[in-house]
Structures are given as C-alpha cells and as structure tokens.
Design a protein around this nucleic acid. Structure first.
Lengths: 224, 224
DNA sequence: TCAAAAGTGTTAGATTTACACCCATGA
DNA sequence: TCATGGGTGTAAATCTAACACTTTTGA
C-alpha cells in the first residue's frame, strides 16, 4: 500500500483543436460526437490517455488516428478539470492545438471520421467546455504566430505573398496593409522567393515563395 | 460498464510554483520532499487532485495548506505527463504558479512545512520535472507581467517606485532606466502616489504608491 | 478594353532609448 | 560634510502606420 493509493484516480483525455486555413478563412475541425453522453453534439476530436503513453504521445496518436498525419505542429493548450465538465464521469482533459495544411488531409479519412472544417468565427455551441478550449487555443496560437514562423504549417510548401497575408489576417481577425506586410517579409531571408508563378489566383500570376527552415534556424529573427 | 471504463485511470496532482519578491530578488518556495520516492530531494510543493474537486480548487487548496492564504493570484502553467516523470507511479501533474507577498507569509507556517525562499537564479536540481515547470512558469509569468498589473501581488500594498522597478528588473533579469520607468508609471493613473513616505530605503525617504484596482478596471491600459 | 490581382517607396507621427544632474537627509 | 538613494526632462533614433499608382493578362 503506497502513499499514492490513498488518493483517487481519474480518467485523463486529450482534446484536439485542429486549425486549418482554406479559402481565406481560419477553420477548426469538429464533428458530431459518436458516443454517449452528448451523442450528436458538435465536439472536438479527442481520446483517452493510455496507461503507458505520455500525454504528448496521446495527443500525437489521436491526431494521427484522425488525420493519418505524423509530426504535425502541436502545442499544449492546458488542462481542463472542472468536476462536472464531462456529464458522464469525472474526466480531466488536456487540450492541444495542431496546425495542418488542409490539402494534406485525405478527404476520405475526413469523411470516415465524420468531421468537417468549420470557420472559426461561425463555430456552433460545442460539447462540454470545448468552446473554451478553442478560445484559449486561438489565443495561444495567435501569440505564437507573432513570434514564430508557424504559419507555414497551415500553407502548402509553395505559397504566394497574398495567401500568406490572408492567413495572418484570418488568424488575427484584422486587415493588414499590403505594402507594410511585404516590406516585413522581404526582411526575412528565410522566406524565399522562387521563380515559380501561381496563376490560380489572378490573371497576371504571382510569384511563389517557400519557407526555408534551415535558413531560419541560422538566423531566426522573426517578427510580424 | 460504460464507454469510459475500458480506459485506464491515473493519479493527477498539482504542483505549485510560488513566486515571492524579497531583497530585490525573485524567489521561489521549495522544500525537501518528505515522502518516497525522492525523499529529501528539493521539490515544489504539491498535492493530489481529489475526486470531488476541480483542478483549480486542488491548486487553491494546496496553496492554502502551505501558506494559510486565500485568493492568491494563480494561473495554470500546464500539464506534465511523461509516463515515468514520477519514479513511483504514473502521475500526471498540473503546474500552477502563484504570486504572494513574502511579508504575508507566516514564518511559523513556512517553518512547519519546511520550505524556503530560493533565488530563482540559484535554484538547485529539483525532483522529477519540477525545474521544467519552474522555467515554464517563469516564462508565462514574465509575459503576463508585461501586459497586466500583476506585479503588485508580489509587493506590499504600499511600495516605492524603486521597489517596483527592482521587481520588474528581477523578474525580467535586466536593468531598466529609472527615468523611462517612472515616465511610464506616471502615465498609469491607477498607480497612485500617496502622501506617505518610506524612510527605510534611504535617508531622504521615498513616496509610497499604491495600486488602485478600481481605477485600473475603469481604464486598463497597462504596458510595461 | 477592362476588371482583377500583383507589385512597389515615401513620409509623418509615435514610440523608444540614451543620457546627467540636483535634492534631502542621517550618520 | 559627504555618501546614499530620490527625483526630474530633452533630444536622437527607431519603428510604425498611412497612403496611390502602374503592371500584367485572360476573358
């Protein structure tokens, strides 16, 4: 009989706020809950933490289960632990947000799990405290986006400056000045201009850029 | 047999990073661990989350147990959940930081719990992942300190501008220009000058100031 | 030919930083 | 009388924000 055993054990789960960027909008992946309690309610995707895995591993595993993708950018949002946050049993949940490039997500897998991309500013009421989780995740993600080049995780490898700007506008919910934005980008040597041109967004076509992680690691002065 | 019961339950604890400010230094409250495993190692103070309390309540209760103080400023740092972070059993821990005015802490209670104030930059190796918790707590606290007037929670009700400046210097680990600092303070109407003078720090004496929470709530433009 | 997105510099204003001396007092 | 911490303003430099027109091309 150890010192520990006089205390209660509880279930611990992870819930994932998966951000995507498409058609100029920031989106979150949500689905209808498939089990009781709360069956049918809009909900984040989650899973339980198993005995032999860390909470980060549980989050990675859950993300992989849902998306088939590994090594996603992922950060912890925090622990949510009201006694009755889950209407069934006492479950403490640890929220994680992840960034994915919508195009990398296999549509069939998405259908199979019955989840969909919902605009961040049109989210319905979600199960339990999931709305609160999304709010906090967004707040943290915004902060990170200002000081680290994580936005590229939401875009294809090659992107136009207009796409990049729209991404920043969507996340922060405010418009930016095109010239000032491009001036800042030009100062960051790790955002490389290619000779490739994307004609999908305009008749004239726009140069495609890429993020050079190596160059960033050598001279990581990012500020937006 | 519910859906939940096929999953493992784990112990969940809270660990507290308690910051104090004294003699111009930022300090953390740590003590020698009183139980196995790890008996005798330097450690944060913590406790288990009980079945019928939220994690925030567990943190408040733990803080009260240790300090006899209620309504401390307290924020969650995050969940720590490596499988073998605790050498005894699987325990997921949620870290919280709290700010207290060292003078409010009853010295007898401190002795009773066998904890002491250790300078943040002279911390020894702590039990398990507690050093990591402190690092993250400090990072978050610094961020908050820049955008919200939480520094007052570390000072007596009445304080001199020199004390306030030393506090900011200690937390951020860098010196500030006295004139620029005072200029900024003067712009914040919720930091009120009193007619009282403190002679303990100098022969000439310095005016004492106080933080007016009501005024802050009306016009919360803080930036330091 | 024209609509629609791409691309490009300059300037005023605001903010930030650097900096040095006099004052009041108790020992 | 002097050592110690308290208190005060200005100017240069940097950063931020506002702003409008030309280019290219497919329909």
């Amino acid at each position: 009989m150890t010192y520990y055993s006089q205390h209660a054990k509880v279930w611990v789960s992870v819930d994932c706020i998966i951000f995507g960027f498409d058609e100029g909008k920031l989106k979150v992946l949500i689905g209808r809950r498939q089990m009781d309690p709360g069956r049918g309610e809009w909900s984040l995707y989650g899973g339980f933490v198993a005995a032999e895995e860390s909470i980060d591993e549980a989050a990675s595993r859950t993300l992989f289960e849902l998306t088939g993708l590994n090594n996603l950018y992922m950060r912890q949002v925090g622990a949510f632990g009201s006694v009755d946050r889950d209407p069934g049993e006492r479950v403490i949940s640890i929220a994680y947000y992840a960034l994915i490039n919508v195009k990398d997500y296999d549509e069939r897998l998405r259908m199979k799990h019955n989840v969909e991309w919902m605009n961040i500013d049109e989210l319905p009421k979600l199960y339990s405290d999931h709305n609160e989780m999304v709010r906090k995740a967004l707040k943290l993600m915004r902060q990170k986006l200002r000081t680290e080049p994580i936005g590229f995780r939401l875009l294809p490898d090659l992107f136009t400056l207009t796409q990049l700007q729209k991404l920043y506008e969507a996340v922060n919910g405010e418009e930016l000045d095109k010239r000032n934005f491009r001036k800042r980008i030009k100062e960051m040597d790790f955002i490389e201009k290619t000779e490739l041109i994307d004609k999908s967004g305009s008749k004239r076509g726009a140069f495609l850029y890429r993020f050079n992680r190596r160059a960033y690691n050598e001279d990581p002065n990012f500020k937006l």
